Amino acid sequence: MGGHVTGAAAALADELPGWVTLLRAPNPGPMTLDGTNTWVLRVPGGEYAVVVDPGPADEEHLAAIAAHGPVGFVLITHRHPDHTEGSARLRDLLGGVHVLAADPAHTIGGEPLTDAGEPFGGFGLKIHLLNTPGHTADSVCFLVEHGDERVVLTGDTILGRGTTVVAHPDGHLGDYLTSLELLSTYRGIPALPGHGPALADCGAAAEFYLAHRRARLDQVRQAVAEGATTAPEVVARVYADVDRSLWWAAEWSVRAQLEYLGFASRESGTGVTELEQP
């Protein structure tokens, strides 16, 4: 969800390490931008690759990923279907490799990703799990190293263009701000997002996102002060210049912002959720 921001949050990456390949799924749309990015990581001369986010259950896309086999394992950044729907079918195409996610429901054949301490990987890659909840409760990023080159795979926590939604109630704004603060420490390292182009500087993009979120909070406070009494009314004020077809997604973020600011809600007699002052 781009909101008022439609450009990139940082400069685009001029080039990517030679061991990084982008395969973009054919599912473009307002929420997926150009389509879901599947990233294939293989060191030069390496036998096995690592795949990040299989994407949708599109046979041609999954066959294109499988053509880069053999694959050591598949990683998942978060549970949304545009990233995970093709997981089971890709696993079959790859001969039963493990699919590893933070959410046990999307982990196939291995153990869920829980330890953000020791790096894991193999195949010439060192992979660090970064717990980055906020967009969803199970969102993670991956810092991947090969030699002196590093990249951060950000899923939907940072996009290549625009800003992401906080998918309330699964997503949580306080968690998201903490995750952005963590990612802001990875200055000068390219960000490989779940949608859109690669960015040159993960840390700079995270700082941009933090400033954007804080500005949004100020706008939400002002909307409530000026008389907005429901989340849809806040959306209409704060996201007035966004296509109305995307207001349902904006409402996720607004509800997360209202919760973060301490506004409780209650069901009125007409079935409308109204805000109560903190």
Rank of each mutant, 00 (worst) to 15 (best):
L261A: 02
G271N: 05
L180Q: 14
H146V: 02
S268R: 12
S245G: 05
T273G: 01
V52H: 10
W247C: 08
T230C: 05
E85W: 06
F73N: 01
L199G: 01
V5P: 00
Q222F: 05
A25R: 08
A206N: 10
E259F: 01
V5M: 14
E274P: 06
G121N: 02
F123E: 12
L113H: 09
A167P: 00
A8Q: 12
L180K: 04
G174D: 15
A66G: 10
A137G: 14
A215Q: 13
P193E: 02
V52G: 03
A66V: 12
L183A: 01
A64S: 15
V99S: 10
C141H: 05
A211T: 12
S245P: 01
G29I: 08
Y260D: 10
P104G: 09
R244H: 13
Y176M: 06
I189L: 08
E85N: 04
H61G: 10
D138V: 03
G7M: 00
L100N: 07
L192Q: 05
T38C: 15
P278G: 08
G117E: 11
T84C: 09
V51D: 05
T36Y: 04
I127N: 05
L125S: 07
T36N: 14
H135D: 06
A101S: 15
G122D: 01
T84N: 03
W248N: 11
V151E: 05
T32V: 12
V99Q: 11
A204D: 13
Y260Q: 03
V166C: 15
Y48P: 00
L62V: 07
T107H: 09
V151F: 06
V238Q: 04
R255N: 13
I158L: 15
L159Y: 00
A198I: 03
A25M: 10
S179G: 04
W39G: 09
D82K: 06
P26R: 11
C141W: 02
W39D: 09
R24C: 11
L177E: 12
A101G: 05
G96I: 09
V254N: 01
Q219C: 04
G46C: 07
L16H: 07
V71M: 12
T230M: 05
G271C: 05
Q257D: 15
G227T: 08
H168N: 12
A240I: 02
G45Q: 12
L113A: 11
H195R: 13
V40F: 04
Y48A: 11
R24M: 06
S253G: 14
G271T: 06
S179I: 07
W252C: 14
L129I: 10
L183M: 04
S265P: 00
L182H: 08
E267Q: 11
V20S: 10
D53F: 04
